[in-house]
Amino acid sequence: MTSAVDTAPSRWAVPVLGFGTFAVGTCEFLLAGLLPQLSNALGVSIGTAGQVVTAFALTCALLAPVLATATASWPRRRVLLLATGVHLLGNVATALAPSFPLVVASQVVAAAGAGLFVPTAAVTASALVPKDRRGRAIAAVTTGFTAATAMGAPLGTALGAVFGWRVTMWFVAGLAVLGLLGVARLVPARVATPAVEGLRQRLAPLADRRVLVVLATTLIAFTAVYLPYTYIGAVFGPATGGSGVRLAVLMFLLGVIGTVGNYLAGMLADRFGSGRVVAFALVWLVVGLLVLPLTTGEFGWAVAEIAFYGIAAFAITTPQQHRLITLAPESAPVLVSLNAAILYLAIALSGVLGAAGIAWWGPQLLGPIAAAFAATALLLSTRTR
């Protein structure tokens, strides 16, 4: 692959792709903060409301490789514009939807756009820069998810608390419009990308047992991470007193702490190795999840728990991607897209398993359930050494 383009790319081309990832990530992550409002406004249980998160994530996980393959021969900017436009359409439809089934259907449309955008943005970013900067370009795109957790989701949750959940969806639609304009203006019309691959070729890295183990670790670890996050409104309901603003504060703190944890994990991975950092983060995560039920009654304890849990939760992200890229550097873009699909699948599983856990044992026991998943991920992670 070469990194030539038909015109010299703007220095803002890669950042605008990161902003696009921020926009689609904000849509997904703020859904967790809106579950109490969706439950009350649309007359469904909190567990049922959580299935909008499941539908979004599962659509991304299943459609991302299929749509990426179907559009592989198209100019990258055209694919990015299509993906952003579909995502925008889905969120406008959500804002106007009169019932919960139509909310879910609209978010499936939005998720199809998100699932196409993220891997396309990663591949495009890597093609816009010299070879020795491709890793950083991909990281700049994926960092949009961290920013969505830190800023987009809490802001959207606070807007929903003050003005209603439909205003939040218009906010997300506005982010999509900005992303659409940015891509149209700053991403070159034609970008040199790898030769068109079929779905079988894109999935070829899965033949490597080491890649499978790392991806399986990602799946189980992030199921543990997102079990309490997806239902954060229910888990910390006693501490927030049902206040959407207090919930937004917790989500903002989680995002900021998670960003710090992700950054520190990257530095430590360079020094001590990705495998050790992941193992340490998972041990930390197990402890944080086990004590979670003791911290949900008072807001001060909830803040302390979010800070402790957040460091470990997002410290897994960068080292796991680094492990994958190290295993097969020549397949980095494909591995990043596969890892993104696995992350979406983990979020989907958290929606289903969390709903079942709440129905059977209540939201306060989601922490120990998630801790069991984190411990399993820890055991699996050691098998890649």
Rank of each mutant, 00 (worst) to 15 (best):
E305F: 13
L292P: 09
V277Q: 05
V291L: 12
L282N: 00
L282Q: 00
E298V: 13
T295L: 13
A307S: 06
F299N: 07
T296N: 08
I311Y: 12
V278T: 09
V303H: 03
L292G: 08
I311G: 05
A313E: 04
F280V: 15
A315I: 13
L289R: 06
L294D: 02
A313K: 07
A302I: 12
A281L: 11
V287I: 14
P293H: 05
A312M: 14
E298N: 12
Y309F: 15
G300T: 14
V278P: 03
G288V: 04
E305G: 06
V286E: 00
V303I: 15
G300H: 03
L285E: 06
P293R: 04
I306P: 04
G297Q: 05
I306T: 14
T295I: 09
V283H: 01
L290W: 02
I311E: 03
V286L: 01
V291Q: 08
V283P: 01
A307D: 02
A281W: 03
L294I: 00
V291E: 07
P293C: 02
V286N: 00
A313P: 10
T296S: 11
G300D: 04
V278K: 00
A279E: 08
E305Q: 13
V277N: 06
A312E: 13
G288T: 01
V277H: 07
F280T: 15
A279I: 03
L294S: 06
G297N: 04
A304R: 02
G310M: 11
I306Y: 07
L289C: 03
I311P: 04
F314N: 14
E305C: 11
A312S: 15
T296G: 13
A307F: 07
I311T: 14
F314G: 09
E305D: 09
A307N: 03
G297A: 12
A281V: 08
T295M: 15
V286M: 00
A315T: 10
V283C: 09
F280K: 04
F308D: 00
F308I: 11
V287K: 02
I311K: 04
T295Y: 09
F314L: 14
G297M: 02
G310N: 07
L292H: 04
L292C: 05
I316N: 11
V303T: 14
A281Q: 06
V283A: 07
A304T: 12
L292E: 11
V303D: 08
G288A: 11
G310F: 14
G288W: 02
A279G: 12
A315K: 11
P293E: 03
I306D: 04
L294P: 00
A315E: 10
W301Q: 13
I316W: 03
I306V: 15
T296P: 01
E298G: 07
E305V: 01
L292F: 02
L285M: 10
A315R: 11
P293M: 06
I306A: 11
L285I: 00
L285D: 03
L285V: 05
E305H: 11
A315F: 13
T295R: 08
V287A: 14
V291F: 02
L294M: 09
V291K: 04
L290P: 02
L292R: 05
A313F: 01
V277D: 01
A279R: 13
V287E: 02
G300W: 05
L282D: 01
V283L: 12
V278I: 10
